[in-house]
Structure formats: C-alpha cells, structure tokens
Design a binder for these strands. Structure first.
Lengths: 126, 126
DNA sequence: CGGAATCCGTTAAGATACTG
DNA sequence: CAGTATCTTAACGGATTCCG
C-alpha cells in the first residue's frame, strides 16, 4: 500500500487511509498542519494573499497579535519558504513580506476556510 | 455595513477586505481559525471524518498526541459542537466520538489541506 | 522611526503516573 | 478504557531596550 506517497496519485487523502494502518505522519494533512498550524500563520498568509506588506502594515491588519509573535511566525514562515522577506537598508527601516508561489497555492485552503467560517457562524446563529 | 454577514453573499472573503478597512475579526477565516486552529484539532477531525471512534482508537491513530491534550482538544471541539461525545455506562468504559454535520462541512478544507500538503512536500523535494 | 531582540509572566502542550 | 493529577517544557503576550 501507499506507493511513493508523493505525486503519483492524490487519492491517498480522500478516504480513510488512517484506518488502513498507515501512520498519520504519512498523511499530507499532518504535513500541512505542521507548517501552517501555528495560531497566526494562516491569518498572516491570508493577509499576504496577493499583497506585499510591511511589518507594520501586517501588525495593523492583525491587531491582536503581538510584535514578538508576529516576528516569530514570519520567521518560521520564511524558513518554510512561504514568505519572502526583503529588507531595505534605509532609515527609517523597511521590511517587506511577500507570499511565495507555494503560499499562493494555499488559495483553495483559504477559500474553504472562509466558507466554513461562515457556515460555523450561521450554525451558531450569531 | 455588512448585511447580516452570514448567508446572503459569500464574496466577502474572496478579495482584499482587510485592505478595505475592515477589522480582521470580521473575516470568517479568523472565526474558522479560532475554532479549528488548535494544533491537533484538524487532525482529530480528519480522523473522525466519516468515522465514529473511541478515545483509544483516536489515540492510536494520532500517536504523537498526549492523552491530556487529546482530551482537552476533544472537549473543546465538543463545546464548539464539532464532535459529539457518547458515553456508554459499561465496564470497561467506552466513549465514542463522532463528527457533527457542522464538522463534516469541513470536507473541502481537509481536501484542500491535503492537496496543499502534497504540494508542499513536493516543493521541498522530500 | 520601524523592526526586532531580550527579559519576564502566563497559558497551552508534552510526559508520566495514577484512578474510577 | 478513558480519563485525571502532577510536573515539566514550549508557545504566546507585554514591556522594555537596541540598532540601523
């Protein structure tokens, strides 16, 4: 079972592969959560969608995050090659963050999340 | 502003509403992350997809989670009405967890996450 | 001045042992 | 079996300091 788990077939995740005895670590969902499972990462990437933003702009768009955490999460995203960080040697300093093509492929995830968020609100009759 | 933000239009999330001056808290993505943003919640729900599982079965399927965390996350999911918890008054005890219809609506999110996880692996040439 | 590093307190999560 | 109790470790928030 599970031939080369990478690119040949994409059926792996559709069904109940976990019940087939496979370790969950083999599942791409676990990989995805590992990378974007941080509390703020999806929101950061959502704000970075189609946008290049400075650190301060991101901070303004995500008011509830602390500077420190924003820095940490951005560094982590950078390490995973989901955001590109460009530093301008200027005064005042300027650092711009851009989503990489890999991050842009998250589009469907963001859309699905968005739709579900609405369904959730509806179900909880807000 | 934002007529009933629930079911009328679903365009809200497609574009750049954050740049429109809206607080991010208005965005359903933030709602979704609030609910399923826990480190393990998506993975739990993924394993619960189309399946009713006992506590121990879930634990086996998600080896890296601790009992305590699994309990906590399940309780949180239960409070948000994403899983139903059924206790059988037997010896030995038996507790079954089932995804609610609301959780089942996460299907597209899980699918998108799964696909992206594969793309991510591929990009990092694993 | 903007961005980030540091110190510290609080909360979430991990490991292990133990109980109904 | 399905948790709870306890302790330890890692993640996040706040404030201050630093540096270009």
């Amino acid at each position: 079972m599970a031939e080369s788990l990478a690119l040949t077939t994409e059926k792996k995740c559709e069904g109940n592969l976990n019940q087939s005895g496979l370790d969950v670590d083999e599942c791409p969902v676990v990989t995805a959560i590992d990378v974007i499972g941080g509390k703020w990462k999806v929101i950061i990437l959502y704000n970075l969608r189609d946008n290049t933003l400075r650190f301060g702009e991101l901070k303004k768009l995500i008011p509830h995050i602390s500077q420190k955490t924003l820095t940490t999460q951005l560094r982590s995203l950078e390490a995973d090659k989901l955001v590109a960080r460009k530093v301008y040697a200027e005064v005042p300093p300027r650092v711009e963050y851009t989503a990489t093509p890999l991050a842009e492929q998250l589009g469907p995830v963001l859309d699905a999340l968005c739709q579900w968020g609405q369904a959730y609100r509806q179900a909880h009759q807000s």
